[in-house]
Write a protein that binds this DNA or RNA. Sequence first.
DNA 1: TGAATATGAAACAAGTATAGTTACATTTTA
DNA 2: TAAAATGTAACTATACTTGTTTCATATTCA
Lengths: 146, 146
Amino acid sequence: MSASSRFAVAVHILALLETNANQALSSSSIAASVNTNPVVIRRILGRLNKAGLVHTEYGADGGTRLARSAHEITLNDIYRATENCRILPLHASSPNQDCRCGRTIQPVLSTIFSNAEAAMQQVLANKSLAEVVREMQAEAKPQACS
Amino acid sequence: MSASSRFAVAVHILALLETNANQALSSSSIAASVNTNPVVIRRILGRLNKAGLVHTEYGADGGTRLARSAHEITLNDIYRATENCRILPLHASSPNQDCRCGRTIQPVLSTIFSNAEAAMQQVLANKSLAEVVREMQAEAKPQACS
DNA sequence: TGAATATGAAACAAGTATAGTTACATTTTA
DNA sequence: TAAAATGTAACTATACTTGTTTCATATTCA
């Protein structure tokens, strides 16, 4: 029932693009930060491209940049670009339609599951990429203690 | 990772137990409504048993009953009993710790993902099994039209 | 007591998704 | 034209879920 790690990697990629906004980054250089294969990065960049979150250029000196300001990208934008499925799936095979319970459970659950997923996405929608980058910079600094 | 339908099936099972509260149900009869194998049902019942949501008895005339009132069982109780993992996973392998972004992304994401998951579970916690059964009964009746 | 009926658990197969890798065609720039 | 980059296909390994068979164990009742 879990999502994939694509979402986490996608946020990582976009945070990296934001902190290096002066240049286009290649999939290889991104892969070095994520610690994985460049093709894995390119697969995720393909989704982010299709969603209009990044802009990629071919060729020598090519690479990827953010397509819009980090203030205008929410984590939910990234989530929807990278994950396919309902996070709370219904039955694998259809319940027995000759049973009253089997007939009625799925429409009821479908509504509830949609509401639950919407609540999760609302939290993501309230967090921008810019905020994430700011929190990462705070994380990098030593904490003041009392 | 493929998604698990255990949660949906577990709600189905418990709704069936509630609507047949006068008798203990065998895994075979439950399986007939869910349209699957009795062993699949017993695996899920094992989790529900461990969580204290149902009570199972061996032997002829055995079977499973709700361990407490349907008003006192929330969908989040069922969710936590049946699903293991974080719903929004972090990176599959640890990012590059020599990169500032690689070092700081995971603690930041971990907090955000926890908040998002908590919002989802809050929706589930606000819905009792009794409400689900009521909605299923409403679903079974023909709708009045205007 | 012994047959019948349950559960619990182990073992296995099939299906599906992810993550990682290699390889190669294509595009762009110098 | 060479170099550097993307996009994509194909393959492997891994992991999880679902479904299935099998069998030991517990309980009830004739």
